[in-house]
Design a protein around this nucleic acid. Structure first.
Lengths: 174, 174
DNA sequence: TCTTGCTGCTGAATTTCATTCTGTAAACAT
DNA sequence: ATGTTTACAGAATGAAATTCAGCAGCAAGA
């Protein structure tokens, strides 16, 4: 709750970097954020309040951005996934960007180094809806050209993981 | 979806498609899955147990795959994001695929229509680590060539949304 | 039309769990 | 050494999830 201010000594817990324990906690919560603090404590070797305290800090520090329900695209009719490269007339926060952000089909917008400026990840109900989106993209001021890759099937899809190296143990649910 | 079985009357709740209420619930939970059932009920116009019941069904049916903590890549040292196109010697579930799945830097693997077979979304600590990954990819049996796009900045990143059309109201937190 | 069975809801009751509080041990700097 | 801070455990509290009857609406069938 300290969202202050002018304190000089800046070694506050909010900004301390993550230790092994934090990464263990993240490792569990990335897989299942409904884990109770009792179980969470058991998994990482901490009492429930201690685990709670650390998780609270992880949330406040922004390491945990939010906890979200991950929903199956198929279940909500988003059958088609595609990546769209977009050539724009300018770089960075262009006029085109603002428009593209408004399209609900667009899940991600990245500025990339390479032969195109932006890369979009988009999901639509079907090819027809994708065509509609592409048409709108072409009509968007600042957009020069697009090139799209339709995804045939997805083999792996996992969110951001807490560790590159596997320095925390495998998940053994009792 | 009916990979069943011998029951004839297949209109069971588990497989019923989502109605407007379900989508409202998903809409809230996608944004914040820590929402209490009391608040959830208020938002969508349902009693807490009713909301609970529907959410439970959404989980069981697989519409909600899981609830996860979304973590900030920067916080865990994943500074660099890149998309890598990979040319493989075969299509579909190739030998290369199995190897690539094991690389922890790889977040997504898609099979795409276009001039390359697969598209990877990868996250590493820095360019050096990306180079290491690319080197490993080249050495992977079945991989012919790669082409990578390094992400300069990400402007939008939102998970799968429940609705294409905005048929459920804006979030007004009282 | 009147059952019978089913689905989805409400409101109350219960139980589990998150959260707070208090004290303590270790680490650190003075 | 000595005050100061940090992180933790264990108990106490509060709030929330979850369960448990009833009840209304609705469809299929007599």
């Amino acid at each position: 709750m300290d969202q202050n201010t002018d304190d000089v000594r800046r070694k506050r817990p909010l900004e301390r970097d993550l230790d092994a324990m934090d990464r263990k906690l993240l490792g569990v919560l990335v897989e299942d954020a409904t884990t109770s603090y009792v179980e969470l404590g058991e998994r990482v070797g901490l009492s429930p309040p201690a685990a709670h305290e650390r998780v609270k800090r992880l949330r406040r520090s922004g390491a945990i951005r939010r906890v979200a329900a991950l929903i199956d695209p198929e279940a909500v009719g988003k059958t088609l996934l595609a990546f769209v490269h977009v050539d724009t007339t300018g770089w960075g926060k262009t006029q085109a960007l603002l428009a593209i952000e408004e399209y609900p089909e667009v899940e991600e917008i990245h500025s990339v180094a390479g032969d195109t400026c932006m890369l979009l990840k988009v999901r639509t109900e079907n090819t027809h809806a994708l065509e509609g989106l592409l048409a709108r993209l072409y009509d968007t001021p600042g957009v020069k050209a697009t090139r799209s890759y339709v995804v045939l099937s997805t083999y792996l899809e996992r969110p951001v993981q807490p560790a590159t190296t596997s320095d925390w143990p495998a998940v053994v649910k009792d």
